[in-house]
Design a binder for these strands. Structure first.
Length: 580
DNA sequence: GCCGTTTTCGGCCCGACTGTTTTCAGTCG
């Protein structure tokens, strides 16, 4: 059993936690956490880097951590970690993850009071036994009990999908912007960077009079509890468990603040380092000249980047994945925008498991500015999704051709989302596929097969000359289902050879391919298709999330099939397997 | 523990908020 990237990253995070409780210097701890973050975002397996001798080319991975990764790949475990784990009880690491408890208190509860599980800490707190410990009091006792409640909710819960967090954030922001004191505002943090899942919501509002804005924020009807309440910053937990932080910013300092609170942290550190090289220190308030301490205020983010002689860097790519260096050379790509999208090549109707008719979906897509669509209902093997038999597939074609004829110049094409069956066979024979305008092939079943087996299934679909697109290639479901254990290097190689496209599925519960894979596919010249996979009319609006994900993958319009005109699309799809 | 086009040593972001302090430590982002 070879450990996955994620499993190795998780071990490094626990190593960081244990070292922190032991009182190790913070920078050594951060080194492990940085490496963990970096590993989680890799577009390739660690074993592929190891095979190429390139482990220490991974950002944040040096000689020592590279050796530790190699040990885990070879043996499935890490001696260093197992030794550390005997020094600090595992429950103390859990206690560290309680809001309001840091390494100092976790260590004190453990060593001074023998509290080594969250449950023991909770009991002691309820019995009034921790309020007399050093630096503690009744308020910190209450705060820790609240932190334990929140910890229990989080344990059962997971990170919040972008598709939940972004609308919630915009709703609250608009509520605050109704106040005359609020000049303008923005969602910030990981939502603005469009990460697939987010931990908490960061909002910024520009104003010179923060008090009424904070007042409205902390008294909103959806607030469950106020975690903090100040002039510049307040935090609340909503009834749905989401934590929201609001900062009120003087408008003349908006640019540095929005930049700072959008992150990512790694991007910020890169920016600050660059500023220092030019004799400027940068924080959320301003640039400060290090020689005479005079401030340079930036009212816009454009000014922040211009001050550092950088191209403006869109928030979606602020991950320290090379964007600062590229911006310094003025070589950032012009990222795709929603308005570039002309088609939607993957959607469902009442014929399988959708909730609308072909005509309704087509009209709704046209109303959203699309020029053409492909109807791709499920194939016969997807029985639970009411998949189409060959007979029904052929009957559906009549209805699609009628809608197509009626709606011209808008076009409605006939496709399928075909099952890649558990044994690797495709669900329709070639003589049926050749009748279709467009073929999407997707994995839905037996996603937990061993790597070789499931990779071979996908490669078989990629190599079929009638398949045009692989739908949601990795098979993840956000936030709960891990992706399939695919050899993505092999997938990309095969896709490049056969000339097919890979999908960015826009559904907030998929966002698959994720950005780092999309970026690698684009670098390899593989066309990408952003689809909604809509099962209902309103899901056609989810294209927004797919475009954000593509932007995170540094995609330009030309990389994305559904920015192409009808003529370009037909020129690409026709030679592929001789579609009609 | 990582990193480097001023560096292989000496940095590594730092301000806001809270609660317990009597001038500051811990935590968080």
């Amino acid at each position: 059993m070879v450990l996955s990237n994620r499993e190795i990253a998780d071990i490094f995070d626990v190593v960081g936690d244990i070292l922190q409780i032991k009182g190790e210097i913070i920078h050594r701890i951060l080194a492990y956490r940085n490496a963990a973050d970096s590993i989680r975002e890799l577009p390739r397996d660690l074993r592929a880097y190891a095979a190429d001798g390139e482990l220490d080319s991974i950002p944040g991975v040096g000689k020592i951590i590279a050796e530790k990764i190699q040990e885990m790949l070879d043996t499935g475990k890490l001696d260093f970690y197992e030794k550390l784990a005997t020094e600090v009880p595992p429950g103390v690491v859990d206690i560290l993850h309680i809001n309001g408890v840091g390494p100092k208190k976790a260590k004190m509860f453990w060593q001074d009071a023998g509290l080594v599980t969250v449950e023991m800490l909770e009991t002691a707190a309820r019995e009034g036994k921790i309020r007399d410990m050093a630096g503690m009091g009744t308020k910190s006792e209450a705060k820790i009990l609240e932190g334990i409640e929140s910890y229990k909710r989080r344990k059962s819960d997971t990170r919040t999908p972008l598709g939940v967090a972004l609308p919630a954030a915009e709703h609250i922001l608009n509520h605050l912007l109704e106040l005359p004191e609020a000049l303008f505002g923005s969602v910030a943090g990981s939502i603005r960077r469009a990460r697939p899942t987010i931990g908490d919501v960061d909002l910024l509002v520009a104003s010179s009079t923060p008090i009424p804005i904070m007042e409205r924020f902390t008294t909103m009807s959806e607030v469950a509890r106020v975690l903090g309440h100040g002039d510049k910053k307040s935090s609340v937990e909503l009834l749905n468990g989401l934590q929201v932080d609001l900062r009120v910013i003087p408008p003349e300092r908006w640019g540095t603040a929005l930049n700072y609170f959008t992150g990512s942290q790694a991007h910020n550190i890169r920016m600050r380092t660059l500023a220092l090289e030019g004799g400027l220190s940068l924080n959320e308030h301003a640039f400060t000249r290090t020689d005479d301490n005079t401030e340079i205020l930036c009212a816009t983010e454009e000014q922040v980047y211009a001050q550092l002689s950088l191209q403006y860097i869109p928030p979606e790519i602020r991950e320290d994945w090379g964007e600062v260096e590229t911006a310094a050379q003025s070589k950032l790509p012009k990222l795709i925008e929603l308005s570039d999208i002309h088609s939607d090549l993957h959607m469902h109707t009442l014929w399988s498991d959708g909730t609308a008719t072909i005509r309704d979906m087509a009209q709704a897509a046209r109303a959203r500015g699309r020029d053409f669509i492909v109807i791709t209902d499920h194939s016969r093997g997807a029985t639970i999704a009411n998949g189409l038999s060959i007979e029904r597939l052929l009957a559906q074609r009549e209805e699609i051709r009628t809608a197509d004829a009626e709606m011209q110049p808008f076009r409605v094409f006939h496709g399928t989302e075909m099952e890649i069956k558990a044994d690797g066979e495709l669900d329709f024979p070639d003589e049926i596929l050749v009748e279709l305008d467009f073929v999407v092939a997707s994995l839905h079943v037996s996603l937990r097969q061993p790597r070789e087996q499931i990779t071979a299934r996908l490669l078989n679909a990629i190599r079929n000359p009638h398949v045009d697109l692989i739908g949601h290639p990795r098979g993840q479901l956000i936030p709960d289902r891990e992706p399939a254990d695919l050899d993505m290097d092999a997938v990309f190689d095969a896709a490049r050879q056969s000339g097919i496209a890979l999908e960015i599925n826009s559904s907030p519960s998929r966002l698959d391919l994720e950005a780092q894979y999309a970026r690698r596919a684009i670098e390899l010249g593989i066309p990408i298709c952003i689809d909604t996979d809509a099962h209902a009319i309103e899901e056609l609006d989810q294209m927004r999330y797919g475009v954000l994900t593509a932007r995170r993958g540094w995609a330009q319009a030309a990389n994305i099939i559904n920015t192409w005109s009808l003529a370009q699309f037909e020129a690409w799809v026709r030679p592929r397997g001789g579609h009609a």
